[in-house]
Simulated scan of single mutants.
Amino acid sequence: MGQPEIASIPMTSALTRAARVLAARAERVLAPHGFTFDQWLVADALAREQDLSMAQLAERTQLTGPTLSRVVDRLATSALLYRQVDPADRRRAVVRLGPRGRAARAAALADLVALERELLGELGDAPEFLARLAGNG
Score class of each variant (00 low, 15 high):
2 G>T: 12
2 G>K: 14
3 Q>F: 14
4 P>W: 02
6 I>Q: 10
8 S>L: 04
8 S>M: 01
8 S>Q: 06
11 M>D: 10
11 M>L: 14
11 M>E: 11
14 A>L: 15
16 T>R: 15
16 T>G: 13
17 R>N: 13
17 R>S: 13
18 A>I: 09
18 A>Y: 11
23 A>M: 13
24 A>P: 04
25 R>T: 03
25 R>V: 03
25 R>H: 05
26 A>I: 01
27 E>Y: 07
29 V>Q: 06
29 V>E: 04
29 V>P: 01
30 L>Q: 12
31 A>T: 08
33 H>T: 11
34 G>M: 11
35 F>R: 08
35 F>S: 05
35 F>I: 01
36 T>F: 02
37 F>K: 03
38 D>R: 12
39 Q>S: 14
41 L>Y: 00
41 L>A: 11
42 V>P: 06
42 V>C: 00
42 V>H: 05
43 A>Y: 06
45 A>W: 02
46 L>A: 05
47 A>Y: 06
48 R>D: 00
48 R>M: 06
48 R>K: 13
49 E>N: 07
50 Q>A: 12
52 L>S: 02
54 M>D: 09
54 M>K: 13
55 A>Q: 15
56 Q>R: 08
56 Q>C: 01
57 L>W: 01
58 A>I: 07
59 E>T: 12
59 E>K: 13
60 R>W: 02
60 R>S: 09
64 T>E: 09
64 T>H: 07
64 T>P: 03
65 G>L: 14
65 G>P: 11
66 P>E: 02
67 T>S: 07
67 T>A: 07
68 L>C: 02
68 L>G: 06
70 R>Y: 07
71 V>Y: 03
73 D>R: 14
74 R>A: 07
75 L>C: 00
75 L>T: 01
76 A>Q: 12
76 A>H: 08
76 A>G: 10
79 A>R: 09
79 A>K: 10
80 L>M: 10
83 R>W: 03
83 R>Q: 13
83 R>G: 11
83 R>S: 10
83 R>F: 00
83 R>I: 06
85 V>H: 13
86 D>G: 02
87 P>L: 08
87 P>I: 09
87 P>A: 08
88 A>I: 05
88 A>Y: 07
89 D>L: 12
91 R>W: 00
92 R>M: 10
92 R>Q: 10
95 V>N: 06
95 V>L: 05
96 R>L: 14
97 L>K: 02
98 G>L: 13
98 G>F: 09
99 P>Q: 14
99 P>N: 12
99 P>A: 14
99 P>C: 10
100 R>S: 08
101 G>W: 06
101 G>Y: 05
102 R>V: 10
103 A>N: 08
103 A>S: 10
106 A>W: 06
106 A>M: 09
107 A>Y: 04
108 A>D: 08
109 L>C: 06
110 A>S: 06
113 V>M: 02
113 V>I: 01
114 A>F: 00
117 R>T: 01
118 E>Y: 10
119 L>M: 11
119 L>Q: 12
120 L>Q: 06
122 E>I: 06
123 L>Q: 03
125 D>C: 08
125 D>W: 12
126 A>L: 15
127 P>L: 09
127 P>Q: 05
128 E>Q: 00
129 F>E: 02
130 L>H: 01
131 A>P: 05
133 L>Q: 05
